[in-house]
Design a protein around this nucleic acid. Structure first.
Lengths: 194, 194
DNA sequence: GACCAATTAGGACAATCGTCCTATTTATGA
DNA sequence: TCATAAATAGGACGATTGTCCTAATTGGTC
């Protein structure tokens, strides 16, 4: 029980550190210090750095699935649900301006490293893509749903990258308003087609 | 003469390696091997890794200024020039799918490292932003020009990130067509206002 | 041919990295 | 209470890192 708790503490700390410093710039010593255990003891919980990475990705996947599940329950209107996604860039604005998007930056880093878990990290991105696709399907734009999903996902990655670069709050708000307007237009166009 | 040439070789090799592997995952040994000099000799040309990074950023800044200058000369129509920028994601598609955007990924990495040269790297992003702003001003949308510039820049970063994640050529083409259409609409709206 | 500066190679250095081994301490349950 | 397992600390290991020093080589100039 306490073992699981300690393991969870390690994964949580690694999650934060991988996000704020990057995976390869986070050492065993960094994580051990964050959870107050010795470097030697670390080996008891995780044998390799890649093991921790996999655990972190699993946690992120679970967290996001949880989040998407909650959004599914917030409203019957898929527009409202997609707006939940859009507004992450505002809800998490402070962290995004400091460290970028946790999903996008990890994907980019692992791909450059050609890391064995890069595909697994991409699954988080795919999770959002597929969820968005379902929302657009419910909106009535069946054949266009996958394209709209990629469009919104791409939009969010761009906003996150520029938010980190320029730290411009107004830019973020403006882009959110713009994409929400686009979303409403898409919904109306889909409705008139039926 | 040969010294300058060797120095240039080093900067070029570092530029490529920083792009494909990332800054902190590129070692002195990697760069030295790429230009066929010994690690010891390296110190004669660059005393610290940060010195190489600064030289690489300077080179990238110069390269981009050069590129933007050429685009300025391609056409009198700012729409055509902005389209040049938009189509980088197609021209450089192969590399972008492999390593992402060189400007965006470096900015992200240095910010996470809290590196002393992060602001300098951001200047490359600002260079594009300011150039785009001038193009939109020429288009006639004066007060909206800075916003449009950020919008296009943000769009390009999003497309690059998703291109790297999903490696979907059709997605890139579709997004390019979409933003070009948006650009034409903006131009028409600006024209009717005058 | 001799001299001087530019350029190069080799290796030392202290620090840090991921990994691993081995005691020791702590907690659990019969 | 005692045996057993879980958990922890400390340190060793080989490799690699950025940095730096020194000696050797090269090339051009008088």
């Amino acid at each position: 029980m306490r073992a699981a708790s300690k393991r969870q503490q390690i994964v949580d700390a690694a999650d934060e550190l991988f996000y704020s410093r990057g995976f390869s710039q986070t050492s065993f010593a960094d994580i051990a210090a964050a959870v107050n255990i010795s470097r030697g003891n670390f080996y008891y919980h995780f044998r390799t750095k890649d093991e921790i990475l996999d655990a972190v990705i699993d946690k992120r996947l679970a967290d996001r699935e949880n989040l998407l599940g909650k959004w599914d329950e917030t409203s019957d209107d898929p527009i409202k649900r997609i707006e939940c996604f859009i507004k992450i860039v505002i809800v998490n604005q402070a962290k995004i301006m400091a460290y970028g998007c946790p999903v996008g930056t990890l994907t980019t880093e692992l791909t450059k490293l050609d890391h064995a878990s890069k595909d697994k990290a991409n699954e988080i991105m795919a999770l959002f893509r597929d969820w968005l696709t379902r929302q657009f399907e419910e909106l009535g734009c069946e054949s266009e749903a996958p394209r709209h999903a990629l469009h919104v996902l791409s939009w969010s990655q761009g906003v996150a990258t520029l938010a980190q670069a320029f730290k411009n709050e107004e830019f973020v708000k403006r882009e959110v308003d713009q994409i929400v307007q686009w979303l409403v237009d898409v919904a109306n166009a889909g409705a008139t087609n039926h």
